[in-house]
Computed example of a mutant assay.
Amino acid sequence: MGEGLSGLRAVLFDLDGVVVDTAKYHYQAWKRIAEEENIYFDEEINERLKGVSRMDSLNILMERRTREYTEKQLEQLADRKNGYYVAFLNQMAAGDILPGVMAFLSELKHCGIKTAICSASKNTDTILERLNISPLFDTVVSGLDVARSKPDPQVFHIAAQRLGVPAEQCLVIEDSAAGIEAAALAGMKSIGIGRKDRLGQAGSVIASTEELCLALTRRLF
Results as ranks from 00 to 15, higher is better:
M1R: 14
M1D: 11
G4I: 11
G7Y: 02
F13I: 12
D14N: 09
V19S: 04
V20P: 05
D21G: 09
T22R: 06
T22A: 04
A23Y: 05
Y25A: 12
H26K: 07
H26V: 03
Y27I: 11
Y27V: 08
R32V: 04
A34K: 09
N38S: 10
E44C: 08
I45W: 03
G51C: 10
G51I: 03
S53P: 11
R54Y: 00
R54K: 05
R67I: 05
E68K: 15
Y69K: 12
Y85P: 00
V86T: 02
A87P: 00
A87G: 00
N90E: 13
M92P: 12
D96N: 13
G100K: 02
V101N: 11
V101Y: 07
L108R: 03
G112E: 08
I117W: 01
T126P: 03
S134W: 15
D145N: 04
A147M: 05
R148D: 00
K150M: 04
K150C: 02
K150P: 03
R162K: 13
V165P: 06
P166K: 15
Q169S: 15
C170D: 08
E174M: 06
A184G: 09
K189N: 13
G192M: 12
L199P: 03
L199R: 08
A202Q: 15
E211H: 07
R219V: 14
L220I: 15
